[in-house]
Amino acid sequence: MAKAVSVRGLTKAFGPRTVLDGIDLEVEPGEFVALLGRSGCGKSTLLRILAGLDREVQGRAEVPGTVSIAFQQPRLLPWRKVWKNIALGLHRPDGRAVALKALEEVRLTDHADAWPLTLSGGEAQRVSLARALVREPDVLLLDEPFGALDALTRLAMHHLVEDLWIRHKPAVLLVTHDVDEALLLADRILVLDEGRIVATHHVDLPRPRRRASVVEQRTRVLADLGVDVEEAA
C-alpha cells in the first residue's frame, strides 16, 4: 500500500538559514504521528511543505492523497457563517447538509448559523477541525491546534480528535510541544531538532490511554528533548 506521506532528503533554507536539514519521513495510511520539538525547529515549515504551501524546497515531499490542515489559530472567515466556513471550497451542492453533519461530529450543530467571532476559542477550534475533516482527507495536518486553548478545553479536544481519528482514519501529523499530548494520541513520536529528526518513539500503549499509563515513557521522550525530569520531580 502506498504511503500517506513520503519525504526523502527534504531540505529547506530561508536565505542562509537551513531550517529543515535532510528530513526522511514516511507515514502509513491511518497512522497517527506526533511531531515534537522546540519552538523554531521547523515543525510548521515541514507542515506547510506537506500542505503544498511551499514548493521551493530541495529533496522530495510526496503526499499522494488529499490533504487538510488545522492551525493553532482557527483561521475561520469571520464574515461567513460557521456552516459556510465548513462548506466553502467543497464544491458540493449539498454543502449545508454536509456542514451540519460535520458540526454534529464536533457537537456544534447549534452554532451553524453563528458568526465565527461569537464563538469561544475551543468552539472555533472545533469548527476548524470539522472544516478539515469534512474534506475526508487522507492526511490531516494539525499544527499545534490546541496550543491556544485552556487546559480543560484541551483535554476535551484530545478525546474529540482521537474519536474523529478512529472514525475517519486519516493519517495524522500532529505538531505539538506537549509531550503528554503526543503520548496520549500518537502511534509514533518524532523529535525534531535543528531541522533533523533526532529521535523516534513508538507508543504501543492500549487506547484509550490514561495519563498514568504514559508516565514511564514520558521520561524517555523528555530526555530526548533535553529535559531532565528526575531533577524536576
Partner: peptide, 19 residues
C-alpha cells in the same frame, strides 16, 4: 493566514478573492 488556509481547503483563485 486566511489566504493560506483557503488554498489548502481547495478554494479556487476566484473563491479566494470573493470569500
Amino acid at each position: 493566514g486566511l489566504v493560506e488556509a483557503a488554498k489548502v481547503l481547495g478554494y479556487s483563485r476566484f473563491e479566494r478573492i470573493v470569500h
